[in-house]
Design a protein around this nucleic acid. Structure first.
Lengths: 235, 235
DNA sequence: GCACCGTAGACTGTAGACGAAAGACAATCG
DNA sequence: CGATTGTCTTTCGTCTACAGTCTACGGTGC
């Protein structure tokens, strides 16, 4: 076995199995973990909108110094999660009706473009992955496993982004999506069954490389979620 | 004069002239000024792509401590200007051909949507502002004042964003635009005359509230700039 | 002559401390 | 009795110091 080294690979290390190296899990920068923690706390409503975030408090609560907390807050600020008032501190951003609507508009735009690009670029492997996710999602809905269904929904859209092959678009969409999901959490559980039917149609459009149809379907799909948001808001 | 106080304004201060107060220009948070300074240095190519940015060096050069520099670098990282490799420091982001193309794609998308919304929402005041900017731009082009023309071009697009009335969209577009302009700077000087002709057509579409036409025109407009980028790259 | 190892330097990541601005509250003066 | 002003507390903004880690270079053994 060890004698079967590839030609152009002269004695690379000790013939370690290529991908199986555990990569020596490093804790990673502390600021990122603080960022993740805070984002989790915000999205789960543990930190309510408008709440004043005191740096020293958070630092003490997380067992770190103020600096990582500051850097995490900076990042959360640029991404629109907290408002950073000078010389006064950080406050959890308060979602507005108007803003939610704007976010949904932008999301529609980005997702529709992603669907178009996916239809243009996707290979059979990509389509297969979508099929798989869709099947799993339908199973989850059938079993009333809401959490799994929501997660699979996110994965489905992420996969389409991936197939679109535009990292810039993907980055923007990821941010917008996460915020939409924040505003939208109470509503998300309602739409489930219908959502996956629309996904099926979308896959068909991508498979047949029909860019126009894929765009239209995705636009309608996200517009539906938007409408249900507003209906929810009215009640 | 001083006796003419408005009814509902009982002795506000010492009758200071309302808008004429200089507002006591505050230096603002140091990190923001460092951010602006670094962004200026990057966009002007004073800091070249791929260059290693040493915190203590920058701090000393700007006359501040390392901390504001760190926070500025954090923000620049999230906005895609620098790459922050863990335990190794910050490097000015190196633009790729592929990435430039992706950015231009996204820009097209965002600007086109803005044009549509502007066509839907714009009042006569907004149209007048656009007319004014366009006239100024044409004058600048006629006078070969390239810098002013470029600035007015940015102002024109910003005004359309403003008229669209979607702050989320505006935020995303501002980021994308600035980066596009960075990649695109050497090319920008070429397209000038043609650009303002297209602007005229766009104004007409917005005035007549033709959303479809406005979208199409803006898409073609930004696609033209994209094409000239690639032609430039080939030479 | 080549490869490997050890050491030194530099830089980042994190912690703690000091000065300054903003807000709240109470005392004082008209 | 009300408005103003002074003080006081809280919290942010910035600076300095220390520990961990990566890189590069020189020495040593084969």
């Amino acid at each position: 076995m060890y004698g079967c080294l590839p030609k152009g690979d002269p004695m690379l290390s000790a013939g370690l199995p290529q991908g199986a190296v555990p990569k020596l899990e490093r804790p990673g920068p502390l600021r990122d973990r603080v960022y993740e923690a805070l984002l989790e706390l915000i999205t789960t409503r543990a930190l309510q909108p408008g709440q004043h975030l005191v740096e020293s408090e958070l630092a003490g609560h997380l067992g770190v110094s103020r600096q990582p907390v500051r850097e995490a807050l900076q990042r959360l600020n640029t991404e629109g999660w907290v408002d950073l008032r000078p010389a006064q501190g950080a406050f959890v951003h308060e979602p507005t009706e108007a803003e939610a609507d704007q976010l949904l508009t932008v999301r529609t735009l980005l997702e529709a473009e992603a669907a178009r690009l996916a239809a243009a670029n996707a290979g059979s492997a990509g389509v297969a992955a979508l099929e798989s996710l869709c099947a799993e999602g339908e199973r989850a809905v059938a079993a009333d496993d809401v959490d799994t269904a929501v997660a699979l929904n996110a994965a489905f859209h992420a996969k389409i982004m991936d197939l679109a092959g535009n990292t810039v678009l993907a980055g923007l969409a990821a941010q917008v999506d996460r915020r939409v999901r924040w505003y939208y959490t109470p509503v998300a559980r309602q739409r489930g069954r219908q959502s996956w039917i629309e996904h099926r149609a979308l896959i068909a459009a991508i498979t047949s490389r029909d860019e126009q149809l894929a765009t239209t379907l995705m636009r309608e799909h996200t517009e539906h979620t938007r409408r249900s948001y507003h209906e929810r808001a009215r009640s």
